[in-house]
Structures are given as structure tokens and as C-alpha cells.
Amino acid sequence: MEKKKIKILIAKPGLDGHDRGAKVVARGLRDAGFEVIYTGLHQTPEMIVNTAIQEDVDIIGLSILSGAHMTIFPEVLRLLKEKGATDIHLFGGGIIPDEDKEKLYQMGVGKLFDPGTKISEIVEYINNLFKEKVSE
């Protein structure tokens, strides 16, 4: 029996065009053995959630540098709920003030990483999330 491959969607929502970070993370996660789907710039929450469902990903990582995080994270969460896909874990990275982070954590968003985070920290975070799933 093959073990479950963890599939991750790295998405870049909204209007900001800076996807170097998202690409570096996608590449780093690939090197850590995950299957990473990257869909490019300017994704709407609907596009992100549709993709997540069709690809049956385990986890969505959003990269937001534009300041729209308080709009986009809740909307993605809402759509996941609407489509009965709350088992998909949502985390993110970008420039997000601490007080906003707190609010997002309370809504159910997973870890939000700051610029300068080491890839290994993100890998460790994901591995911890899915420890049980991998050893199944």
C-alpha cells in the first residue's frame, strides 16, 4: 500500500503581483517531498476553493502581501464551509499585523508565517499537522 501523498495548494489571491515568495515556498515544499499545486497570480477565493476541491488537496497555503488578508482568509474559510470541505487546512504567509493574526487564528485559520521564515519551519509545521495521516 502506498502511503498518502500530502497535496498542497499554494495560491496567490488578489491583485498583488509579488509571487517570488509563493514560488520559493512551492519549490521548497516540493523539495520536502510534497505534491504542490501552484496556480499563478490573481486568484479569487472561488478559484482557490474550486481548485482545492478538484485536486483534493489536504492543505491550502495563501500568500498575501497586499493587506487584503482580513477579506480573503475569511472568504476562503466561508467557501470551504459552504462546499463541505472544512477538512482542508488553511494556512498562509505574508505581511500580516499581529492583531489581525489573532483574529484570523480565532476564525480557524492555521499558522500565518512572516517574511523571512525558513522553509524548514513550514515543512515541520505541515508534517506535524499530518503526522497521523502519513503514518496511516
Binding site: 516540493r30 523539495d31 501552484y38 499563478g40 486568484q43 472561488e46 481548485t51
Partner: peptide
């Protein structure tokens, strides 16, 4: 393709298919 080294993969075909997502 999957990496023969890490067994991970970067699946990027969807980038070109954005107009189909909805």
C-alpha cells in the same frame, strides 16, 4: 513530473488554465 530525489512535485499546468477554473 515527480522529483526522483525528493519524490515531491510542483504541478504547474493549472497556471495556464486559469480561465477554466470557474
Amino acid at each position: 513530473p515527480s522529483s526522483p530525489f525528493s519524490f515531491g512535485a510542483l504541478l504547474g499546468d493549472r497556471i495556464r488554465m486559469n480561465e477554466l477554473f470557474l
